[in-house]
């Protein structure tokens, strides 16, 4: 029997894709460490100045842009008409909307004209467009996994959007009774985020369970982290912080602070890994089975 040829390993500027990913993970941890260090330093001095400052926004912008670029690179690996093409177009579009949102948060400090109305800001438009794009990609991926038609998928998606809007409106009515001073639109947008988070996070968890440890679904793990961040945020806006101790508040703040950029980092690195797999196949060195079996095992004999 012939000996099996070994798979060539590709390199990018002399670095194997696995090393690049390890470098990416290290960089992500370094950024989170710097952020944590700044937060704990501010906690000792002036935490309000930390939250009012732009440091966190700048740190977040880096992985946000990285994730959107990686998403576009993944999308570029498919041809129009392929089912995954639509999924990843929607996913990367969602990430770009969120990059626009992050930028508008930074610019908002310099250009208050970015405000659409006192209750509904430019950034909300980007966040919501991002949610709807990412939601669409989630639904398309789920339907693809279950082998269902896209026409039916779009109906399900439209139904989910309508459901989220109606649910947020109902909750707004309920919450408004306790907060008559806040405008309806402000409360509606504030409540719509956690509703969308529950839907997006739930669907992302569903997908993650369906795909298990498969590499394909790992970008969705980022959305699960976003849902955690926004859940803490919603807890804060709904007055939940009044019910917990300062130490618990600080812990929640810290979790939220770290998971937010970490969600972009997770999505970005998973997308980058998927890009390497799509671009270089087995040569990426990322598709090696844990153990040799089947043809390979017997081919080594």
């Amino acid at each position: 029997m012939k000996k099996m040829d070994h798979v060539k390993k590709t390199t990018i500027l002399g670095i194997p894709p696995r090393q690049i990913l390890i470098g990416g993970v290290s960089m992500a941890f370094a950024l989170l460490a710097v952020l944590s260090w700044q937060y704990f330093a501010a906690l000792q001095n002036d935490i309000d100045a930390f939250w009012d400052g732009q440091f966190f926004n700048y740190i977040t912008l880096v992985p946000a842009i990285g994730a959107a670029l990686a998403g576009s690179a993944v999308t570029g690996q498919f041809v129009r008409g392929e089912r995954p093409h639509r999924i990843w177009v929607a996913f990367s579009l969602g990430l770009w909307f969120w990059v626009a949102g992050e930028i508008s948060v930074i610019l908002f400090d310099f250009f208050p004209a970015g405000i659409v109305s006192p209750d509904f800001q430019l950034v909300d438009i980007f966040w919501l467009l991002g949610y709807f794009s990412l939601g669409l990609s989630l639904v398309l991926q789920l339907l693809s996994a279950y082998g269902m038609g896209q026409r039916r998928g779009l109906s399900i998606y439209a139904g989910m959007v309508v459901f989220a809007i109606i649910l947020a409106a109902l909750l707004t009515e309920i919450v408004r009774k306790g907060k008559p001073d806040d405008s309806w639109s402000f409360l509606f947008v504030t409540i719509l985020y956690p509703v969308l988070d529950v839907l997006a996070g739930g669907t992302a968890i569903w997908l993650s369970l369906l795909f298990g440890r498969g590499r394909w679904s790992r970008p969705w793990w980022g959305l699960i982290l976003f849902a955690i961040t926004d859940a803490i945020d919603a807890f804060y806006w709904s007055g939940g912080y009044d019910l917990v101790s300062v130490a618990a508040q600080n812990t929640l703040d810290f979790i939220s602070l770290v998971t937010y950029p970490a969600s972009y980092m997770t999505a970005g690195l998973a997308l980058l890994a998927n890009y390497f797999i799509l671009r270089y196949g087995m040569e990426s060195g990322l598709l090696k089975p844990a153990r040799e079996s089947g043809l390979a095992k017997r081919g080594m004999e």
Binding site: A145, L209, L210, F211, G212, R213, G214, R215, W216, S217, I277, L287, K288, P289, S293, G294, L295, A296
Partner: peptide
């Protein structure tokens, strides 16, 4: 053949799928 196919697909789409 099926064993190898299953293993390679496992890495990408996970074992459940």
């Amino acid at each position: 053949l099926f064993m190898s196919m299953g293993m390679l697909m496992d890495i990408v789409i996970g074992s459940a799928l």
